[in-house]
């Protein structure tokens, strides 16, 4: 596990300050989407080896949701951004 996370608000912090929620890549479907789409969003997850996007909550710091882009095999962290910025960037795409 990556041991140092550079929070965009607080600076470089140890991983003990964070709580991990899960994958940030799945997009929430529209409320009226089909049951199969919702089932896939809620229950079905890939288990990739390599680069992943995850939601991390900075519990002991700024208490903001962050999106950490890291490699779960080499433990390298490629980038950390605030979850609100992540949603904004994703919304534009």
């Amino acid at each position: 596990m990556a041991s140092l996370i550079t929070c965009p608000h607080c600076g470089t912090r140890p991983k003990e300050e964070f709580s991990i929620r899960g994958a940030a890549a799945p997009k929430r479907p529209a409320p009226a989407a089909k049951d199969e789409v919702w089932h896939r969003y809620v229950y079905v997850r890939d288990n990739p080896k390599g680069r992943v996007l995850e939601y991390w909550h900075h519990v002991a710091g700024c208490r903001r949701w962050l999106v950490v882009d890291r490699d779960n095999f080499t433990h390298e962290v490629f980038g950390v951004m605030d979850a609100s910025d992540f949603e904004r960037v994703r919304g534009v795409e």
Binding site: C10, G11, R13, P14, E16, E17, A60, G61, C62, R63
Partner: peptide, 10 residues
Amino acid sequence: SAAMMCCHVA
């Protein structure tokens, strides 16, 4: 100043 873990306390 910043919020951080000090002796396991926020």
